[in-house]
Design a protein around this nucleic acid. Sequence first.
DNA 1: CGGCATTTGTACGGTTTGGTACAGTTTTTA
DNA 2: TAAAAACTGTACCAAACCGTACAAATGCCG
Lengths: 233, 233
Amino acid sequence: MSKPRNRLLGALPEEIHERLEPHLDDVSLSLGQVIYESGERLEHIYFPTTCIVSLLYMMENGTSAEIGVVGNEGVVGIALFMGGETTPNRAVVQSGGHSLRMRISVLKEEFRRGGRFQQLLLRYTQALITQMSQTAVCNRLHTVDQQLCRWLLLSHDRLDSNELTMTQELIANMLGVRREGVTVAAGRLQEAGLIQYHRGRITIVDRAGLEGRACECYQVVRNEFERLLGNAV
Amino acid sequence: MSKPRNRLLGALPEEIHERLEPHLDDVSLSLGQVIYESGERLEHIYFPTTCIVSLLYMMENGTSAEIGVVGNEGVVGIALFMGGETTPNRAVVQSGGHSLRMRISVLKEEFRRGGRFQQLLLRYTQALITQMSQTAVCNRLHTVDQQLCRWLLLSHDRLDSNELTMTQELIANMLGVRREGVTVAAGRLQEAGLIQYHRGRITIVDRAGLEGRACECYQVVRNEFERLLGNAV
DNA sequence: CGGCATTTGTACGGTTTGGTACAGTTTTTA
DNA sequence: TAAAAACTGTACCAAACCGTACAAATGCCG
C-alpha cells in the first residue's frame, strides 16, 4: 500500500471496510498530546496510521510508568468495546503523526455484529495483553539496559524511520526510572555502536545488535503479535 | 447462595444459565497443578469456585513471575474466546479447591451469540488487564514489602478463610524475588502484627493494616474489579 | 552576539535487592 | 526412632538503582 494506513483496518474485508470508511476521520496528533486521561470517557476510538501512542499509569505522587505502546498495528481505546468505557491510565502521543478515528456509536454497532471486525479487535487485545504482562515480567527481572533495548525495539517496529524524536527525560518517564539512569544506559548502547543520539534524536544504528542485547521479553511480544495478527496484516 | 459458585456464572440470566448448566463439570484441582502450559491448546475453559489460579510467565532460565491471579470472580483461559487459542504463560493452582469447566465448543457457541455471556467475559478480561498492567507498575516502582502486601490482599480477596497455605518459596516464585527476600519482608509484617505465619501457613491478622502498608496498586485493581463487575456479581 | 532554557554528563553516598552460604527448626519418611 | 527432607532465619558482599547536586554542552530567541 502506498498510502500509510492502519493495519487492523487494512485487514478488514472489502464489505466491512466500505461500511466503515465514511465514518473514519483523519486527525493529526502532536507529541505529548493526551488522547485520554485516566478514567475519562471517550467519544472516539483511534486507529493510528503514522503516530505512536503510549499507555501510561500515573502514580499519585506524579511518577509514571508505561504499560503498553500502540502504533498502526493496533487501536487506542480498547475499553470502549471491552465494555468498561474507561481505564485507569493515560494515553499520550509518543511520536507525532496521524490517526484515523471513529465515533464510539459506529464502533459499537459494528462490533456487535460479531464478524471479522470484532475478531480482529479481540485478537489485537490479546496481543496487547501479552505486551502488558511481558512488561510486568521485564520490570521485575531485567536491567534498565535490557529494558531500554526492548523499548527502542518496540518503538522502532512502529516507525518507518530509524530516527526517533525523544529526549532521555521522556524515555525515563516511560520506563519509570531516573533520567540519569537512561543517560548511562544510552551511553553504553552508543559506545557499543548500537545507537546514536543527540539532543532528543535517537538513531537506530544496529538493530540486530539491539535485539541481541535485549532480554527475551521483546521476542515473546513480537512473536505473539505475529502469531495473532500476522496473517491478517 | 449457600453453595460456593463462580460469580461470573452466577451473574448470568436464568435463560443462559439453564442452557449452560448441563455443560458444566465440577473438577477438583490440587495445589501446584498446572492447568495449562505456555503455548498449550486447551480443551476446556475453567470457572473457579473455591480454588485460586496463578498466571505465571516462565523465563527461559527457569525463574518466574506472576502476571495475574484468578479466583471465583473470573475465568481461566481467556485466550479461548479472545481468539488466540493459547498464551505464552502458565496457569498454576495456587490454592487447591474446585472449579467448574466447560468444553471449548460450548464456550465459543455461547460467546458468539453476543449476549450477556460475552459481555461479562469481556468486562472480566478488561479487569484482568488492569490487574496485569498494575503488576507491571508495581514491579517497577514499589518495594518487596509493598508487593507482598498487595499479593496477600489479592489472594485473601479470593479466599473464604484468613489462612492461606503457601510457603515463602512459592510466594517468592510468584513475586519473582528470592526466597530470602520474602522471609525478611514477611518477618517485618509479622513483627508489625499484620500477619502470622508458620511453615507454609499464613494467617491474615490485620487486614486493614495490610491495606495501609500496600501501595496504591492494590486499591486501583480492586476498584476496577468493583466498577466493572460489581453490579454483576 | 549574549542570555536563557533545554538537554546531557558525571559524581557520590545511601538503599534495596541479588547471590551465596550455612545454620536451626519442624515435619515427613524409612 | 533415626535419618532425610522441607521450611525458615541470618549473614555478608556485590550489583543495581535512587536521590541529589552540579557542571557542561547545545539550541533558541531577543
